[in-house]
């Protein structure tokens, strides 16, 4: 849970009973997903864009991961004091490939093919000193 931290950016995700959801859209004509919401379908092959609001998550599989050993500069929001965090590319069951933090840095839990679940959690302290939350993935 996000423990009182406020979203890094409003409107991109919401908490649900079984985890979290990403708030995006999907083309009703060709099925192409988009996150964040997109006014138009981005598929190279779709000539009849019909974007409708859609939610994604919570279940997915890790495509790849990395552990970030040095703090990137703002606008990145990082733990204070800094502690290396893992981030990953996750293929959600509903067809979206999404980037996000991971709660674990253990390769055995987050290696390619690992099952993960979308949740909301704190990602660090921003330049205003506020704790911020985002969508993150935890081992399922």
């Amino acid at each position: 849970m996000s423990d009182g931290a406020t979203p890094a950016v409003e409107g991109l995700f919401r908490e649900a009973e079984d985890g979290a959801r990403l708030c995006g859209s999907r083309c009703a004509h060709c099925g192409t997903p988009a996150f964040p919401k997109s006014a138009l379908c981005h598929s190279a092959d779709c000539d009849d864009s019909q974007m409708q609001d859609a939610e994604f998550g919570p279940n997915g599989t890790v495509w790849s991961y990395s552990v970030q050993h040095y703090p990137p500069p703002p606008p990145a929001i990082v733990p204070d004091p800094y502690k290396p965090y893992a981030l990953g590319v996750v293929d959600l069951e509903d067809g979206l490939r999404v980037v996000g933090r991971l709660t674990s840095t253990d390769p055995a839990q987050i290696g390619a093919g690992s099952a993960v679940r979308l949740v909301v959690g704190e990602i660090g302290i921003d330049t205003e000193g506020k704790a911020r939350s985002s969508w993150i993935f935890e081992p399922a």
Binding site: L87, V99, R101
Partner: peptide, 11 residues
């Protein structure tokens, strides 16, 4: 790119 850096932190 702003969203990617702020919400995830991916240099």
């Amino acid at each position: 790119e702003y969203l990617r850096q702020r919400c995830v932190g991916m240099p």
